[in-house]
């Protein structure tokens, strides 16, 4: 089709209807921005066909002039609107000169990432850091003394059944084990420092426990300890509430119930409501006077609280991970989701 067909064809004595039909046909076939501009000049411009038609009105009688004049002006409005639509269409479908394919993927810097356990440990420790707890770490191969004895868990006591232990095989020592919890750092910290104490201790722990979707023999724990004059059970609740708000959101329901751990008295289990069930998040309690005394603290002067939790368990809950064994199998299909 010739480029300017219709636009340049000027016809004397053209009717409004004829002009409208010609304009619409010509507009439909105008695709490039150049063609559209030619169409606008040809029909709507100062020397265009609509202007020509209006100029020709002078030859008509007054009544006819009114009718045709009104129709021609209405047509101007219609054609202007059609032109705008068409021009918009054209702008969106027609790439400007020098266009590039913006749908091609960008050059992304390689995104590394932290293991989900590390992320959760950092989130937990930071929550406590902001309440004045400093993060510290301790040995994973540990002495029975710190792991059990100083924590009021004597040998051959049924309370030890809560911690099935992997022992180190040694000709010279039979009191070395893989720590079953991060709690030995309670004893170590108090032994090495005077109060006040506020520490949070992340790290790996080990249990002689068969593994399944919810049990691992190798996992992380985050321990916490605060000891000073005047620390109470109400402080324990307040501190852990604050933590739970931070990790699980301000709307989450939290409950504290009585539980037993030999190194605290009273003992606490903190649970949160999750999908209609109460899920235990951490064990806690007021530091047992014997634990204070074993570390050389005056239990009539100082009180404190301690707590411990599993970051993998919290991660499993929040991220709906159904098998704890994913954490240490390091499949990239798992790791890259965090």
């Amino acid at each position: 089709m010739p480029k300017d067909q219709g636009v340049q064809a000027t016809q004397a004595g053209e009717s409004v209807e004829e002009l409208k039909a010609a304009a619409i046909i010509a507009l439909d076939s105008s695709e490039s921005s150049e063609q559209l501009e030619a169409w606008r000049v040809g029909f709507l411009g100062r020397k265009g066909r609509l202007t020509g038609l209006l100029r020709g009105l002078g030859s008509l009688d007054i009544d006819e002039r009114k009718v045709v004049g009104a129709a021609a002006n209405m047509l101007r409005g219609q054609l202007e609107a059609l032109y705008e639509d068409r021009a918009n269409q054209s702008r969106s479908s027609q790439a400007p000169v020098g266009s590039i394919d913006i749908s091609l993927p960008g050059r992304r810097p390689a995104l590394g990432g932290l293991h989900p356990s590390t992320q959760m440990i950092r989130e937990i420790t930071q929550a406590f850091n902001e309440m004045g707890f400093q993060t510290i770490e301790g040995p994973e191969v540990e002495l029975e003394k710190y792991n059990f004895d100083m924590l009021n868990i004597p040998a051959n006591h049924p309370a030890r059944d809560q911690w099935d232990t992997i022992w180190v095989d040694s000709d010279t020592h039979n009191d070395v084990l893989l720590r079953t919890h991060t709690s030995p750092m309670q004893a170590r910290t108090m032994e090495a420092n005077d109060p006040p104490i506020r520490v949070v201790v992340p790290g790996k722990c080990y249990r002689y426990e068969s593994t399944d979707a919810t049990h691992e023999w190798h996992f992380n724990q985050v321990e916490g300890l605060a000891v000073d004059e005047g620390i109470t059970f109400a402080d324990l609740k307040g501190t852990l509430y604050q933590f739970a708000r931070r990790i699980f959101g301000p709307q989450r329901k939290v409950r504290f119930r009585c539980d037993f751990f030999p190194f605290v008295e009273p003992g606490v289990d903190m649970s949160i409501e999750w999908n209609g069930n109460w899920i235990e998040i951490l064990g806690a309690g007021m530091v047992h006077p014997k634990v204070l005394e074993n570390a050389g603290y005056d239990s009539t002067k100082y009180t404190g609280f301690a707590f411990g939790m599993g970051p993998e368990r919290i991660s499993m809950l929040r991220n709906e991970i159904t098998d704890i064994r994913h954490f240490f199998s390091n499949d990239l299909r798992f790791l890259t989701q965090f």
């Binding site: 309440m131 506020r198 109400a234 402080d235 008295e265």
Partner: peptide
């Protein structure tokens, strides 16, 4: 402390107030 736990657990841990840690940070 054993007796204190007895009191607290029967009264209910929910009925013990909540406070934030005061005092000296280490």
């Amino acid at each position: 402390e054993d007796l204190i736990e007895e009191i607290a657990r029967i009264v209910g841990y929910d009925n013990i107030p909540t406070t934030t840690l005061a005092g000296r940070p280490p």
